[in-house]
């Protein structure tokens, strides 16, 4: 497997992603600068990492949407290539339209950095097929704009097509208001596109190099 990690001005989780793939998954990985106009050959997975691309000016992901490498990422995903966006990467993928919905400021208006419990809702993707349905994962979040939003029709469509990847839950795996860190609609922490080759999620699995290593399996599409 060969992975590529996109680097924008302001990305700050690119190195974490790189070493999670290299040292924990023992797979090939390289950085891809945002101003490139082509992707490396034989790429299997693209990671759009967290951070504050272009300072999050205007909206998180609004400027990254027009990076030179972006049309190539869209083409790659269109051909069935695997793309995973984490945190700012998730925001970027919704801005680009590869994933439905949008991410808004947390309902608390605070930047939240803590570990959260997630439940695997859909295993119908390569990213989550290494888990059983309802598996609980502990992964850190670190964001100010993570409140997932989609309109009522969009939410129905997500449910009908099994596109909800993860929900925020309590330690027992119960979806509750208290376990929702940012006010996300239906406690949604991550979603797929319809084909399930694109995943976006606010929590940071690449930060699980030392603890909760089972979360790293998310990056494995074997």
């Amino acid at each position: 497997m060969k992975y590529g990690v996109i680097v924008f001005p302001g990305s700050n989780c690119d190195t974490d992603c790189f070493y999670a793939i290299k040292n924990e998954l023992n797979e090939k990985v390289e950085y891809i600068w945002h101003a490139e106009t082509s992707l490396p050959k034989d790429l299997d997975v693209i990671i759009v990492p967290g951070g504050f691309s272009y300072g999050d000016y205007l909206r998180a992901g609004a400027i990254a949407k027009f990076a030179k490498i972006m049309p190539e990422i869209i083409k790659f995903a269109g051909k069935g290539g695997y793309v995973i966006g984490v945190c700012n990467g998730f925001q970027i993928l919704t801005e680009v339209g590869l994933l439905p919905g949008a991410l808004l400021h947390n309902d608390s208006q605070k930047f939240i950095c803590k570990e959260v419990n997630l439940k695997v809702i859909s295993t119908a993707s390569k990213f989550t097929s290494n888990y059983k349905k309802d598996t609980l994962l502990t992964i850190p979040i670190a964001h100010g704009e993570g409140r997932y939003y989609i309109d009522a029709n969009g939410l129905e469509s997500l449910k009908d097509n099994d596109q909800i990847a993860f929900q925020y839950v309590d330690k027992k795996g119960i979806v509750s208001k208290e376990s929702n860190p940012n006010g996300s609609l239906n406690n949604i922490a991550g979603v797929f596109n319809k084909k399930k080759n694109v995943l976006g999620m606010m929590p940071h699995p690449e930060r699980c190099n030392y603890s909760h290593k089972d979360s790293l399996k998310l990056f494995s599409i074997n």
């Binding site: 909206r59 609004a62 027009f66 919704t94 949008a102 989609i150 309109d151």
Partner: peptide
Amino acid sequence: KVLANTVI
């Protein structure tokens, strides 16, 4: 295209 995200 740019200034607003019409989803939200």
